[in-house]
């Protein structure tokens, strides 16, 4: 069970109080009624599903109720940073992603011993 830092409550809380809500920094088009089918597809359906750094939206639903954003590593499941909704994407050093201390999944370490 993860601990997640809520940028509004300013402390780490149990994952049980949170809900994941999908990718972050995908703005709803202002003129949504006028966009093309391709634009709508891009906005609504297409996601990158990256290995490694991802920006996500979370909600402290059983806490302060606020939606916020998180930079997370999909390999280790680790939260790298959380920040308030509306704040720009933080620039994270690439090192944060390749750091040897970043844990890997069980599957990745299976059978390996150094």
């Amino acid at each position: 069970m993860l601990l997640i830092h809520c940028p509004y409550c300013e402390e780490q809380r149990s994952e049980l109080e949170f809900r994941a809500v999908g990718d972050a920094h995908i703005a709803r088009p202002e003129n949504i009624a006028a966009i093309s089918d391709a634009e709508f597809e891009e906005y609504f359906f297409l996601r990158d599903n990256p290995k490694g750094l991802i920006f996500e939206r979370w909600r402290h639903i059983s806490g302060c109720g606020r939606f916020f954003n998180a930079a997370r590593d999909t390999v280790s499941d680790r939260f790298l940073k959380t920040y308030k909704a509306g704040e720009p994407k933080p620039s994270l050093p690439i090192a944060a992603m390749t750091d040897e201390t970043v844990v890997e999944t069980y599957e990745a370490t299976e059978g390996r011993a150094e």
């Binding site: 409550c9 809380r13 149990s14 049980l16 109080e17 059983s62 806490g63 302060c64 109720g65």
Partner: peptide
Amino acid sequence: CSRTVFGKAE
């Protein structure tokens, strides 16, 4: 004070 979870209730 805090809103939080208690078992399966809020």
